[in-house]
Design a protein around this nucleic acid. Structure first.
Length: 282
DNA sequence: GGAAGCTCCTGAAAGC
DNA sequence: TGCTTTCAGGAGCTTC
């Protein structure tokens, strides 16, 4: 499942392989893939034709390819989205949703492949700081040098919610998904249902340190892949799943205290934690 | 207005 | 063997 490290791996691949290429055409094979482009597939293809891609940018789990100074192609990978750079002669993938070709045929094609169709592409105007308008509400991510730790802590203190919900709230901190939330909470010894209003500034600082730590480590090995659903632009998987401490390790011993890791249903998904290291709140 | 819950979707795995 | 159910989860939308 693509979170910040996986999206950053893809962004770097796009920068290397398609930055500066001029679009020859776009083909939408599944309308749901561009559902956030309200003007529809024909407009989507018409507006892309003839434009050059500038260097890709990212905020949290969103990445975008600027097209000149005032618009961009915005991408979100959702659960299973892949942006692949493929030779034009390569056979179509089973879940190929959008194909973008370039004037330089040697550059190959940019393909958006998405089995579960939670991801998508869309075109949007850019705001003053070069951010697509529809993601203006997305907070900076913890690897962004301009991420404001103090403002984040104050926001947590104001909220009447629990820490894992807050970590997944992209308007508070972006880029964190279910896997890295569980990993960072385990490293900080925080239970996922700890009320955010009870966090002290040192605890928030420690949590942010652990979030950055786990994301940086994942980025170094190409991200986390449990299956073929997350790959980089060349179709290769990452290796961080071998380094996960709690996520997906139900009944296996905690790597700190050997207590069996627990899994609890949580918000239509799962939370993994060590019942000894991460005591529930009173 | 803020917080919680629902929904979209596909295919692998589990259950019967 | 084959059918049905469960599970995975990001984020926009709806409900309370």
């Amino acid at each position: 499942m693509p979170e910040l490290p996986e999206v950053e791996v893809v962004r770097r691949g796009l920068e290397r392989w398609i930055g500066g290429r001029t679009i020859a055409g776009a083909e939408v094979l599944h309308p749901r893939a561009i559902r956030r482009h309200l003007a529809g597939p024909v407009d989507f293809a018409d507006r892309l034709r003839g434009l050059p891609f500038a260097a890709p940018r990212r905020r949290g789990k969103y990445l975008w390819l600027p097209l000149g100074d005032d618009a961009a192609l915005l991408a979100h990978l959702g659960m299973s989205g892949q942006l692949l750079v493929q030779p034009g002669r390569a056979p179509d993938e089973k879940h190929l949703r959008v194909r973008i070709t370039f004037t330089d045929a040697a550059a190959g094609e940019l393909r958006f492949v998405d089995q579960r169709t939670f991801g998508g592409l869309s075109l949007h105007p850019l705001l003053g700081e070069g951010l697509p308008d529809v993601i203006a509400h997305i907070a900076r991510d913890p690897l962004d040098p301009l991420f404001d730790e103090d403002a984040f802590h104050q926001a947590l203190r104001r909220k009447r919610t629990t820490i894992k919900r807050a970590l997944l709230d992209q308007s508070l901190i972006s880029g964190v998904g279910n896997i890295y939330a569980d990993e960072a909470l385990w490293r900080t010894r925080l239970h996922y249902e700890r009320p955010t209003a009870t966090l002290t500034r040192p605890v928030t600082t420690e949590l942010l340190t652990r979030v950055r730590e786990v994301m940086t480590a994942a980025l170094a090995v190409g991200g986390t892949s449990f299956d073929s659903l997350y790959v980089n632009v060349n179709g290769e998987s990452g290796y961080f799943d071998r380094s996960l401490d709690v996520y997906g390790r139900e009944d296996e011993p905690c790597r700190r205290c050997a207590t069996p890791v627990r899994r609890r249903p949580w918000m239509n998904r799962s939370s993994y934690f060590c019942p000894k290291c991460q005591r529930p709140p009173r």
